[in-house]
Each structure stands twice: as structure tokens, then as C-alpha cells.
Amino acid sequence: MTLVEKIELYSLTLLKGAGFTIGITVITFCVAVALGLLFGAIKAFNAKRELSSLLSFTDAVLYLSGRLLVLLINVYVEVFRGLPALAVLFILYFGLAYAGLQLGSFAAAVLGLGLIGGAMLTEVFRAGFGSIHQGQREAALAVGMTPLDALRHIILPQTWRITLPPLANYAIGLLKDTAIVSAIAAPEIMFFARNLVTRTFDTEIIYLLVAVIYFCLSFPLARLADRFEARARAGVR
């Protein structure tokens, strides 16, 4: 086989894994955004509630349960920001199987990377929500919006400027992190690459192709992140 033929053949095989890589990135991204939005919102809105505004017993209960929730969220964030992704994946995939709960490699990958991403995005969204003045929400409620309407139409649109750049950077990091789920046998690009290598021994060609494929996947995301960053900076001026 000539070099060109090899490259063609290997690329076709590797691109089969690219579909899985993209799929796992998109689904994990959605999971992480959902977790981050929820926990970030809880953290941001509980930070703004103050003791002095307690009027009744229900207020006190709400305040304390809010504090407890925030504490739990903080523990979650610290733990999943401090753990290597590989350790989380191994616990979920090999550890849980030992405990009698066999997760598939796809489920383990989405859950593991999603929990890690959620911890990261919790802080991103907290900062985003925290930057919006309370008056914005109060004004929305005053003109008759429901709290959900206020969130959807008033608060969220204003947080995007702050949250979009780190979100785009997170997406790039996530795309790259999916390379390690080959270690729990998920059939993505690296997994196909390792199989190809054991069959053909063309190590350097195959891993260079892998690098090129990842680069092509992440390059558009990187440009998007740059544009968001430029726009966010322009808005401050």
C-alpha cells in the first residue's frame, strides 16, 4: 500500500469514531449545561437572599434549606473539580460494575464527563447570574412576569455575554477530554486508532491523523470562542 492509500483507508476508519466522539460531546455538553444552570442558579439566588429579610417561619426554613443546598453543591463542585476525569470514569465503569451496577461505556462516559462539566459550569453560571442586578428580576416580576418568564426573557439573555466565552472553551476542552473514554472501551476516535495500530503498526501515521481530525473538529469551536470573547470585551467598553 502506498502512503496515500494508507492515509485514505485509516481516515475512513477513524472517521467512524468521529461520529461517536461528536455524539458523546454534544450529549455530555447538554448534561453539563443542565447541571450547571440548575446548580449555578441555586447558588446565585441563595447568595442574594439575606437573613435580615426573614419574616416568618417559612422564610427561615427556606433560608436554611437554601444554605444546605448550597453547601451540598459546593461539596459536589470541589470534588468533581479536584478529581482527574480518568479516576471518575474508572470509578463509574469498573467500580460500579464491581458493586453490581454495570454501566455501558457510553453511559459511564456521559455521566462521568457530565458530572465533571456540571461542576465547572456551576461556577460559570453562578458568575453569570451573579452579575445581573436583583432589580432586573424585581422589575420583571413587577410588570407581571412569572419568575420563570423573568428568568427566560430577562435574566438569561443578559447572562449570555458572560457565560458564552467559558461555555465555548468548555466545549473545546470536552471534545478533547472525550479522547480518554477510549480507556473504558467507548468506540470513539482514539479507540479505533488503538485498534488500527495493533493491526497495522503504522503508529505515527495513525496518531498524526488522529491529531489532525481532533484539530479539525475543535478549530471551528476555537474560532467561535474567540468571537464570543471579542464580543464580550466589546460590550464592556
Binding site: I172, K176, A179, M190, A193, T203, Y207, A211, S218, A222
Partner: peptide, 16 residues
């Protein structure tokens, strides 16, 4: 920024 660290490691350890 665009290539996973794991791929870099594999290139150096298995590719070089």
C-alpha cells in the same frame, strides 16, 4: 489547544 493531551502522549510514546 485543539489536540487532546492523550493524542500528544501517544504520538511521543508510540509514534516517535
Amino acid at each position: 489547544r485543539g489536540v487532546p493531551t492523550l493524542v500528544i502522549l501517544f504520538l511521543i510514546y508510540f509514534g516517535l
